[in-house]
Amino acid sequence: MNNEQLQLIQAGADGELDAAGQAELDALLEHSAAAREQHETLLRLNAFLGQVPSLDPPESLHGRIVGAIKLPKPAGGGLAERFNFMPGLLRYGFAAGLAVVVTMAVYQGGSQLNGVDYDKLVGTISARGAELDRFDFSEPGVQGSVRLLERGDQFALEFDLDAEGPVRFDVNFSQSGLRFDAFAQADLNLDEMSLTKNSLVGRTAGSQRFVVLMRPDASADAPNGQISLEFFQADASLARTLLTTRP
């Protein structure tokens, strides 16, 4: 057999031939025992190699990769600047911005989040409401709880974390039908925070209490009411859950 015929046989065994090529191969196989043997050997080799299963990457790999990649910041460096691009906050204008500042100031004053009267704290942009869902977790060195609250068309995720070492948290509400509205925290010491319209990623350590305020997103496509949360330590997933706005 010449090289062209060998390439034809290989392409046939790999399913790379068009109709004309396949017809050419069929004719060759019909008339050449050597071609048939070569073709069958290739098919057996392909089948043998095809028995090897795909490997699962180590569980920590995803966290390692995502944690190592630094994306450009969505907006300016400071927390206040990051708020500036948020449509929800823009809608409220100066008054809402001021409310967030007030919220932070009060939290910085040492209020216990779970005892906070949101009506007094954040006025027009948030309200204490009914608990829709809740997630509590406790792992060695890390404990936390997250409550999903609702009043009217306003929603809040209330975080209370206590970690011995750095913990990263990913919040994604892209499927929930909600959009980011504002953020308030008790102690301004998050190591990192990245906000988008439908997600929040942060890194912190020690005791942290903060609230993510959300509003319905009229542009959401087929929302399912679910907010995903995941916590990582040393790039390994510690805990994950879905909170839902629907009973």
Partner: peptide, 26 residues
């Protein structure tokens, strides 16, 4: 979205390709 700093887009893209990339490397 990644170019705009969207961490969720990054996580999705990594999730999609981490397994095939790992298998090639392995």
């Amino acid at each position: 979205d990644c170019k705009k700093g969207d961490q969720q887009a990054l996580a999705s893209l990594v999730r999609r390709y981490e397994r095939p990339v790992y298998n090639v490397a392995y």
